[in-house]
Design a protein around this nucleic acid. Sequence first.
DNA 1: GGATGTGAAGTTTTT
DNA 2: CTTCACATCC
Length: 665
Amino acid sequence: MPRPTTSKHAAAPSVSSLLADLNPEQRDAVTTKGGPLLVLAGAGSGKTRVITVRIAWLMGQRVAPRALLAMTFTNKAAREMKERVAALVGGDAAKEVTVGTFHAFCAKLLRLRGAPVGVPPNFAICDSADQQSALKAALRELRVAEAKLSPGTLQSRISLAKNRLLSRNDALALAKEPVDHLVVRAWQKYDEQLARSRTLDFDDLLLKTLALLREHDATRRELSDRFQQVMVDEYQDTNRPQYEIVRELAGRHQNLAVVGDDDQSIYGWRGADVTKILHFERDFPGAKVVRLETNYRSTVPILDAANRVIVNNPHRHGKTLRSALGDGDAVVYKRVDDEMAEAEFVAREIADRVRGGQASWRDHAALVRTATQPRALETALRGRSIPYVLVGGMSFFDRKEVRDVLAYLRLVANPDDEVSLLRAIHCPPRGVGQATLDKALAFATSEGITVGRAFDRADAIAGLQASAVHAMHEFRAKLHALGAQAPGRDLATWLHRLLKEVDYRAEVDRTYPDAKTREERWQGVEELANFAENHARRAESPTLQSFLEAVTLSQDDETQDDDEHGKDAVTVMTLHSAKGLEFPRVYLVGVEEGILPHARAVAENTVEEERRLMYVGITRAQRHLTVLCVRSRARYGQRGECMPSRFMYEMRGEAPPKGWKACGA
DNA sequence: GGATGTGAAGTTTTT
DNA sequence: CTTCACATCC
């Protein structure tokens, strides 16, 4: 691959000095312009820097900003990339570059061009909670006991099938056991409801986009002509539909640069397909591969431990991290009696460090494998009055009051939205109960109309009480009137009017008898209003729909971010949510057989992914790493003996002692 | 239509 | 040992 030389169209001075600051591999990754490129970016190797400088460099090479496309998986990554590109090339040029998550990109495209694949421009997007409700309804309709097929299982089975690009018919052909047939039937009901509601789920956004690109030549041609340079961040997290979309978009110019680390692929269980990064050179013949192995984050002992663990995975692009920082403190290994002792140890140690003036609270993180582990840690931290933030758990957008209000908003934006109607009608209760709803649903099905329309024709439904009919009409009229006021910049004012109209305060008062929680919950509603206010102020042309889309596609909220970055506090979080972050001092807790690797992963033969999780955990640490395990742990109410994790021995380069037993053995 | 009790299950989480 | 979802009763 020819290395471009300095030309008369030399990059802006800032860009060339940026190039000079890169190491040779990074520079190679930035300045490889033609053909497929795989950048294997080890943990802490300056990945984001490479992508952003690459974008700036390409612009310096006279590639038009609007010919650049960069795809990410999270909004946070997209936001960060936009900001950093803007800092390099200036806001005006940066605005022209297409940077976004796969889902946001697809939503925007479908909004404008979805018609050929049957997507109406005003479609709604449902998140996974709405999806669950819809699936529950489907199971109820089929009279399937949830014991036989839980909505959760159903959801992941449908999603995994879609991820494999299987149609319902394909799934039907593959069905073996009775439950497989059940899945397909529920899937069909679910599809019907979504179609009636003019709604797409997250997977549909990708699948419809792929269908559009494949079936509609004009759109594919236009986009693949336009995007001369396509970049994908975190390529190891790509699923099949995303891969196919990228293939189509980069089809014309074949200038596809993907950046990722197969050793940090930890989302296989939700459809991410590591083989896509492992087989990149096969999928894109002639691809150039650049390895970024210099790590700017951690000291030698930490990286040695990381390298010793990950080398045990057989299926990977071999990489060895080298520290740019040099030597440091040895990794500390500790085995204590139980999870209380473990939490105490962590809390005491953190308190000592901070009191000794060697570190502040925010320098520390305790990383766990499962959601139940933080409990003991929280107790110990509270006991010492150590400020901490628990990342993850219930998101702002999962809170009941927020979901309730969003249901109202969705319903105003899209009166055909069944899931939202069925939720809003009870919040607060307004004289339309389950029995009435069942009749309305049956009527809607037999007439081939949506539940909303059935409400309008409540007179025609047999066996309803006059009061119920009246309530249904009133409910529809109220929302219709609110919809007629079509909010724009006045979104927040309008939202308050809506809350008053539907008397949402009554729902909060009813649900929370305690005055204090009541106030807290109402605070959640106010926060949503603030969010709306912000959106209305910042968006180019704010509408109710644009607000809903922003909310649905960005579950990682900024209110949370403010707290986490602003506050001086210890971070407690799962290994999954720690990916991409770094801390001077890290504690890995519960590193035992059965926890990490998790017992279920051992049973399902996915220990390799658990090892990557361990690797991610180790490589979060900048200067100090402490790895802990316990002798006994309470699980499901019972206390049981625990063996140190196999990873404990791997990272030390030791064989497990006699008498050690692997989980599942 | 809402409150109270019983039963089963119990990794990871973003879009 | 919890938690959460469902069913039953008022």
